[in-house]
Design a protein around this nucleic acid. Structure first.
Lengths: 393, 393
DNA sequence: CTGTTAGCGCGTTCAT
DNA sequence: ATGAACGCGCTAACAG
């Protein structure tokens, strides 16, 4: 109808409302901030009407500029593709909702450069705090955050040299839980498969716990391949083969063997090498099994322990491609994280309390924003073992 | 060390930089906006040094307040749990990156109230535009958006009474593609399973296309159950059973039958009823098969066509629970959307060009923000059929 | 080339 | 109970 409707009808400002209500800006401001006690009922009514008529909505930006707080918090997420992340997000959103915060979600998509860029951007928008589920970030990248800078709380992983609250899974307990489950169910060869963990504390802790349990019950060794040379064992001084003190109530010869295999999902060639090594182990176990004439009781029983869902998916896809739909009869799979498809395929998992992790993270952050000064806290939540067919035989 | 470090060390402002560099604010502003040609090399150097020394970062809020544009766009997402959404998001983020936009991601978590709240919030933060992957929103909820309000582009679904650009799958073509695939592979009983579609245009289109193809080739009927009475066929005047003109090159008796089953995933009781109906059909088909002494050539062949991934997952989980790991030998499954687990379980899918959808949506929005005035555009992208074992027998 | 001035939309004294 | 004036951090005219 209108020959030339304005591109953007310019939203009403507080001044417009004041004029419309025949009063000053101050009164409008008071009304907006709920200082009703300082307004005559008559004026209040006029203001209400004016706001309604103009469809006025206060400008958060201007408001934040003045007050110094804009109720914005940043959420830096390493990988939204990981169901874990989305679940944590749900908890965090609920908490934000309850606390009157507005989350600015940033998805680094597993790229360190993105991470850096977003962090910088968040800082630029003057978020009041930030929740970080980081990649292998270190010092420089998040200098503006934590300690002296803007309040931060870490999710799932801690970052070297950064003091800040952290909330996540009790990785040690979870990895022990999984390892013991496999051991107790008679698997005598267990492969712990994990992405390069040098940089990521949660992976490191999971691997260490696995290694320790295996070392105590039998023997453990690192896999031959290891990504681009930055696989795992750094300056931690881990010897190739650990003590052989194992007592286990299962296995062809009463001894259990543990291996750690590093799989760099970002490097397909490395993945192929790692999977090939795995295949050899599985084939060997299968041969041993066949040799004893279908006597599973005495066969080598091999299990895979995936450090998280992306790794588990990678493994499952490969195994299915190689051994067909019945791959689970050849090898058991246990994963930390509990994605959709675990129930569908009967894979045993350790479910993280993701929702609570997100919720608590925001609560912590909120406290920091409000000025709580206690030293850095860690909140470790327990995982829940969900036993499915894969590890029961 | 410091007895009382300031809670927030107050970031440097443009004024601080000016003082530090011994010059006026304007020159700093010019420097920030790249108007280098108007600065003496000497001054520029001083500014650079001052900025570095103070670790200065311009305040986007203040900047936006002045300019009237803050480079923020809103992304209203119905369900981040759906892999589709995350994939679209990736494309959108890439486009934002390229266009210098900052996406404010809002997750409605399938709650209409959340959706309303976030839309209001976005408006309050003066986002320059918004990308909407809405629930069953109508008129009032997003009045501020589109048409006269702030620029908007719809993703996946159009909204009643809202004129705006839209980008999404070519639903009609995709549903036809899937239906024909099933028909061509000899399935003579096909169930199209979909969430309540009255409100959601994409679901409506998919169902309609399915129904039309089935009607043309055989017969079609609605399922008996239908959620809370708001299932599907509203005022569209669809008769229970359509024409029986079918010619098909398959089936026990050369005739194909199509059914539409509405599954309201939010209502577990309704889901149970719907699945029960499905079970009866599958059992019936199975009996017919057994009667003819393991002669699959002459058996009733039944297939499920899921309208999207959440529905497919629901179906797969149920079937696995009811028929065990070998459920796929009893019934075929085809789904629009291509989640992780499809490859893992061998389910046939129609993959949407999700990344491109997200990318294009942001491009459209950017054009609108820059003032493009053409009438509402629709961008329909084709789906890709990925044939897997499930529908090949 | 450079600095001065005047707001952007709002909250906050401080008067009245 | 109410309003005028100032400033938040920054940009956009205007002068010099």
């Amino acid at each position: 109808m209108n020959p030339m409707p304005p591109a953007t009808p310019r939203r009403a400002t507080i001044t417009d409302v004041a004029r419309e209500a025949g009063t000053g800006k101050t009164s409008i401001s008071r009304y907006l901030n709920g200082e009703m006690s300082a307004l005559s009922p008559e004026l209040r009514a006029r203001i209400e009407a004016a706001i309604e008529r103009l469809d006025y909505q206060p400008n958060q930006m201007a408001r934040g500029l003045k007050r110094g707080r804009n109720r914005l918090i940043g959420m830096l997420l390493a990988d939204l593709t990981n169901p874990y992340t989305v679940e944590v997000l749900q908890g965090a959103e609920a908490a934000c909702h309850a606390l009157g915060l507005m989350p600015l979600i940033c998805h680094a998509a597993n790229e360190v450069e993105m991470e850096r860029r977003y962090l910088q951007l968040l800082t630029t928008y003057r978020v009041e705090g930030v929740i970080v589920n980081a990649l292998g970030v270190r010092e420089e990248t998040l200098r503006p955050v934590g300690g002296g800078g803007i309040p931060a709380v870490l999710v799932d992983r801690s970052v070297e040299g950064l003091v800040a609250d952290m909330v996540g899974l009790d990785n040690r307990a979870a990895a022990e839980l999984g390892t013991r489950h496999l051991l107790d169910n008679g698997f005598d060869e267990i492969w712990f498969v994990v992405q390069p963990f040098e940089q990521v504390s949660s992976r490191r802790l999971r691997e260490a716990a696995f290694r320790e349990v295996m070392s105590a019950r039998g023997e453990w060794s690192a896999s031959a391949v290891g990504g681009r040379g930055e696989g795992g064992w750094g300056a931690s001084g881990v010897s190739g083969v650990s003590g052989v003190s194992g007592v286990s109530r299962a296995g062809a010869n009463g001894r259990v063997r543990g291996h750690t295999l590093v799989l760099d999902l970002a490097d397909s060639a490395a993945v192929a090498r790692g999977l090939a090594e795995l295949d050899r182990a599985i084939d060997a176990a299968g041969d041993a099994s066949n040799a004893s004439t279908n006597a599973p009781a005495n066969a080598a029983r091999i299990a895979l322990f995936a450090a998280n869902a992306p790794v588990a998916l990678c493994l499952a896809l490969h195994l299915k491609a190689r051994y067909g739909a019945a791959w689970q009869s050849r090898v058991a799979l246990l994963s930390i994280d509990d994605p959709d498809w675990a129930e569908l395929t009967g894979v045993t998992t350790i479910r993280q309390p993701t929702y609570e992790i997100g919720y608590r993270a925001v609560e912590f952050l909120h406290e920091r924003i409000e000025g709580v000064q206690t030293s850095a806290r860690d909140c470790l939540l327990p995982g829940e073992l969900i036993v499915r067919a894969s590890t029961l035989r």
